[in-house]
Computed example of a mutant assay.
Amino acid sequence: MQQAPHPYVGMWVTEDGHVRHNLQPNGRYDEARGKRQSAYRGRYWVTGDHIDYVDDTGFTADGNFVDGVLHHGGMTLRRKDE
């Protein structure tokens, strides 16, 4: 049985568009920074409104979703309309 994607799946971007998090339905993420596509890749999981990241090198980070905004590493990212 396949689970429905989490409601936070999708593209999240900073206001200036420099940082872009693509939260994929398979539990993987791909982060672009500036012109550097796939600057960071790894796994993520969401518990309630909290997100934990582990990139493919083992680095960990986390963030929180508050009122439709992702707060992560001192940045605020908003969902990008596709």
Score class of each variant (00 low, 15 high):
Glu31Ile: 13
Tyr44Lys: 03
Ala32Asp: 15
Val19Glu: 04
Arg33Asn: 11
Gly42Val: 07
Asn26Gln: 06
Tyr40Asn: 14
Trp45Val: 03
Gly17His: 05
Thr47Gln: 14
Pro5Leu: 09
Gly34Asp: 11
His21Ala: 09
Thr47Ile: 05
Ala32Lys: 02
Arg41Thr: 14
Asp52Tyr: 07
Pro5Ala: 13
Pro5Cys: 10
Gly27Arg: 03
Asp52Gly: 05
Tyr44Met: 03
Gln2Asp: 04
Gln3Ile: 08
Ala39Val: 02
Ser38Ala: 15
Gly42Ala: 10
Gln24Ser: 09
Gly27Glu: 04
Ser38Tyr: 08
Lys35Val: 11
Gly48Arg: 05
Val54Leu: 09
Lys35Ala: 15
His6Trp: 05
Gly34Glu: 10
Lys35Ser: 14
Lys35Met: 13
Tyr8Pro: 00
Gly17Cys: 06
Gly48Trp: 03
Met1Val: 12
Gln24Arg: 15
Trp12Gly: 00
Asn22Arg: 14
Asp30Pro: 00
Gly17Arg: 09
Asp16Ala: 05
Tyr53Pro: 00
Arg33Glu: 15
Val54Ala: 05
Ser38Trp: 05
Tyr8Ala: 10
Gly42Pro: 06
Pro7Ser: 08
Arg33Tyr: 10
Met1Tyr: 10
Gly34Leu: 12
Glu15Met: 06
Val46Gly: 01
Val54Gln: 15
His50Val: 04
Gly10Met: 04
Ala32Val: 00
Trp45Gln: 11
Asp16Gln: 05
Tyr29Thr: 01
Tyr53Ala: 02
Pro7Gly: 03
Pro7Phe: 00
Arg20Gly: 02
Trp12His: 01
Glu31Thr: 14
Met11Ser: 13
Val54Asp: 00
Pro5Gly: 08
Thr14Ala: 04
Gln2Ala: 08
Pro25Ala: 13
Val46Gln: 02
Gly42Leu: 10
Asn22Phe: 08
